[in-house]
Each structure stands twice: as structure tokens, then as C-alpha cells.
């Protein structure tokens, strides 16, 4: 009678329910994602000195990558004019890498086409190489008196007025004529706050038509005898370059909290990937 008054039956029912349903606790989730099937992925630079391209395929997001960690596929890649007429075929360097050494004109429209057995062919949008930058001045200042582990390098150039430019730079060790590791570091204070949060790409918004200088360094361990030369690649990139860089971001913890996943920029039709353009000058120095 007392039990009935207190509603013991209900309590018992709840305890049973609790026991059954508490078994649902789990951190992992199972999703059966919708996958459209493997497609060709064409990533390439078209620049004033030729074309560098890589041909791979997409992969089911829930399937592991091949043991080789490469999604490269055999195939062919062509450089075409804006009307789709083939200019040249890129040389197959193996493992999905293709290259073409050829002087290409700025302002001219180009298209890349690629094909591979078992995949739909892909065609890029028309892309154009941007105008070149003014020459870069590089000043080797020697080891930092406050930190003898860093060798200071200053770079400067003058922005071309009345033109929207986005600059990029890279500094690599040069070994036996081949590009080696990235060895030129940068001081965030010198670049980031002035022109946004990009380290290697920056628009001329904050120095339109003005001289611009930024300070870099090479760590002692990258100096001779470990390396003997430095190649600085400096130039302008098409605005899509920056958009693409942005679209590849959003992987950090903060971004996961505050943003929706960002779609990866693509200008390749029939598949995925990106064809970007830049106008680059090489500056080689003996260290």
C-alpha cells in the first residue's frame, strides 16, 4: 500500500529504463557518408616559367588512404589556349607529377586538360598569369647580435601603384640545382600585423604604391656546410591564389568551434582541384 502511494512501480520502471538507455553512451559516431565515386583531382601552377601539375584522385572520406599515402593516378595533362586548343603536353615525371618548361605570357588565357583511364576527363577554367612584381632587393645582414643562431636577411621591394597585387615569397635551400627544404623563416611582427595573418602571401592593401620591407632569418643549422645556396622565389599571384589558401584553412581547433567547414576552392570541371597562376622570379644566392 505504501509502495503504491509512493509510486514505487514508477520508480522501478524508471530504474529499468535508465539501465537500458545508459548503454547508449558512446563518444564515437557512425555515419554512412554519401560519396559520389572517385574523380580526378588536378592541382597545378601555371606561371611565367611553365606549368607544374599533379594528377590524383579523390578518396572516400571514410576509407583509408593507400599504403603509399599517394592518390596519384597515371594520365596525361595538356596546356591549352583559352579556346581549348592544345599548346603542349606536360611531361610525366611519375607518381602523378607533370611539368612543362616553357615561357608563358602574362595576361594570356590558358586552360589545363587532363585525363586518366577510368575517370571522366577534367578541364580547368581559363586562367591568366598576373603581371610581374618590381625587383626584390635582398640584404644579408649577418648573424643576429642578440641571437647568434639566426642569420638575418632583409627583403624589400616597391609596390606598383594603382594595381591590386598579391605578393608571395618562398626561400629554399638549393642543393645541386634542385630545390631543397624551406629554410627562410620570418618574423610575424614584421609581416603579419601589417598585412593580415598571412606569412607568405600578402596583398598590397597596406602599402599600395609604397616601398615594403620585411625581415627574415635563416637558422644557423641551415647555413653552410649543411646548405650552400639560397633560392628566393618572389612574385605576384592571382587573387584566386589567396582565396585558395584561405579555403584550405579551417582545420584548427578554434575554427572548428567558430566556423562551418569551408568548401575547398576549385576551378576544375568534371572533377576536383585547382589551377592557379603566379608570376615568379628566382633570386639565387651563395650562402
Amino acid at each position: 500500500m505504501i509502495a503504491k502511494k509512493l509510486g514505487v512501480n514508477s520508480v522501478l520502471w524508471l530504474v529499468i529504463l535508465f539501465v537500458i538507455l545508459s548503454g547508449c553512451r558512446s563518444g564515437a559516431l557512425e555515419y554512412d557518408l554519401i560519396y559520389e565515386g572517385d574523380r580526378l583531382v588536378l592541382n597545378a601552377y601555371v606561371f611565367n616559367k611553365g606549368v607544374i601539375a599533379r594528377l590524383t584522385r579523390s578518396n572516400h572520406p571514410q576509407l583509408p588512404l593507400p599504403a603509399s599515402f599517394s592518390l596519384a593516378v597515371p594520365g596525361r595533362v595538356w596546356l591549352c589556349d583559352a579556346d581549348g586548343v592544345i599548346i603542349a603536353e606536360l611531361e610525366d615525371r611519375g607518381d602523378g607529377d607533370f611539368e612543362l618548361d616553357m615561357s608563358l605570357a602574362t595576361g594570356t588565357g590558358y586552360i589545363l586538360k587532363a585525363s586518366s583511364d577510368g575517370f571522366d576527363p577534367v578541364v580547368s577554367d581559363v586562367v591568366a598569369i598576373p603581371e610581374p612584381a618590381n625587383p626584390l632587393t635582398v640584404n644579408f645582414r649577418g648573424f643576429d647580435p642578440n641571437n647568434n643562431n639566426t642569420f638575418l636577411v632583409d627583403m624589400a621591394f616597391v609596390d606598383i601603384p594603382n594595381r591590386k597585387d598579391i605578393y608571395f615569397w618562398e626561400g629554399h635551400a638549393l642543393k645541386n640545382g634542385r630545390k631543397g627544404d624551406f629554410i627562410l623563416g620570418y618574423f610575424f611582427n614584421e609581416i603579419g600585423p601589417q598585412c593580415g595573418f598571412y606569412s607568405l602571401f600578402y596583398p598590397d592593401d597596406c602599402f599600395e604604391g609604397q616601398p615594403f620591407q620585411f625581415d627574415c632569418y635563416i637558422e644557423r643549422r641551415n647555413m653552410p656546410p649543411n646548405n650552400d645556396s639560397l633560392r628566393i622565389e618572389f612574385g605576384t599571384v592571382h587573387p584566386d591564389y589567396l582565396k585558395y589558401v584561405k579555403s584550405t584553412e579551417l582545420t584548427g581547433d578554434l575554427e572548428q568551434i567558430f566556423s562551418e567547414p569551408r568548401p575547398l576552392l576549385s576551378n576544375v570541371n568534371g572533377g576536383y582541384g585547382i589551377v592557379l597562376t603566379k608570376n615568379v622570379t628566382y633570386y639565387d644566392f651563395k650562402l
Binding site: Y31, L33, I34, Y35, E36, R39, V41, N43, Y45, R54, T56, S58, N59, H60, P61, L65, L71, Y244, T248, P261, L264, Y272, G273, I274, L276
Partner: peptide, 9 residues
């Protein structure tokens, strides 16, 4: 959620 995985540039 993601639809596929690909290599970037």
C-alpha cells in the same frame, strides 16, 4: 560533413 578527401596543391 565531408563528401570526399583529396590532395591539396
Amino acid at each position: 560533413l565531408p563528401g570526399f578527401v583529396q590532395e591539396t596543391l
